[in-house]
Write a protein that binds this DNA or RNA. Structure first.
Lengths: 156, 156
DNA sequence: GCCCGCACCGAATCTCGTGCGGTGACTCGG
DNA sequence: CCGAGTCACCGCACGAGATTCGGTGCGGGC
């Protein structure tokens, strides 16, 4: 993996904050020529550093006013079973994000639904019937803050 | 909140998938004129439905190869204490996301650090000293899949 | 000291964004 | 049934931006 200098870091910071900034403005903010800037952004994409540009949407506007974390215990804990249940959960329309974790629980799902009733239905209809899900519990999310900008950590 | 029709939903889907799509291409994909498309996108922003455009970055490229969920118990559970610890945790550079939840734990932090050693240091240096954090435990994240596109849920 | 590679720049061209006036459909009162 | 008002949409035109390409300076290797 090629090294990243300060300009690359600044590019990433700007694009994480506002992915629709024009190349022109980005170049101006960095003090380099637009053509150079374009080349660097393209290189970051090709290197796999920049993985995508995504709009974020207000969940309430999408009829999803209730969020929860669902913690699942999976058995047996084989690679195949984990892969399969992970794909299944991630594919559910109510699910925003899935974590495969170590510790007391094996899977954590971040879900967003219309109301608590729908949360309950979803748990009963989609999680309970699965044999590999031996148990699960849910925590309603009161607040969720997400940092849009991730900076590189310096080597020790 | 104004109603959303199929075209609005399609706009949201496209922009969530690729926030840098040109207005022209977006309009073409929807079968409407670019000027109309522009107007609708602007309306979605003004209504607060579209909240932002963000580039996503490969965490490994930023020297963050280890992720974990950290579950915190907070006492006393007053509004002020929760607000304050939430802001503190969200402001830490290692933290990607913070959930304030109901249930056995009160706060869940999604952190991304360079290695397990740094995770340990972080827990010891940043969480342990806080008086309001009565206990915490961490779960290493093996995999994390995040759905980039969120669709509206139909009313029941 | 010379050569080569690399990153950067500036100009030219081509595409795109965006405001404006016009137009058709739909609604509602007469 | 008809006419006016409203609203979303469209096409056009102009300004702004994206992207390419040839040129340039600098630093490392020999």
């Amino acid at each position: 993996m090629a090294a990243m200098d300060d300009i690359d870091s600044a590019i990433l910071e700007h694009l994480q904050r506002d992915a629709r900034i024009t190349n022109r403005d980005l170049a101006r903010a960095l003090g380099i020529a637009p053509s150079t800037c374009l080349e660097r952004v393209r290189a970051l994409r090709n290197r796999g550093v920049l993985t995508g540009y995504h709009a974020t949407v207000d969940l309430a506007a999408l009829n999803r006013r209730v969020q929860a974390l669902v913690f699942l215990q999976i058995r047996p804990l084989s690679r195949e079973v984990i892969e399969s249940i992970k794909s299944y959960v991630a594919g559910l329309p109510e699910v925003l994000s899935v974590y495969v974790v170590a510790g007391g629980d094996d899977l954590v799902a971040h879900v967003a639904v219309q109301d608590v009733e729908q949360l309950h239905s979803m748990l009963m209809d989609r999680f309970s019937p699965r044999r590999e899900v031996v148990t699960f519990r849910s925590s309603i999310i009161f607040q969720h803050v997400s940092e849009p900008v991730v900076s590189p950590l310096d080597d020790v």
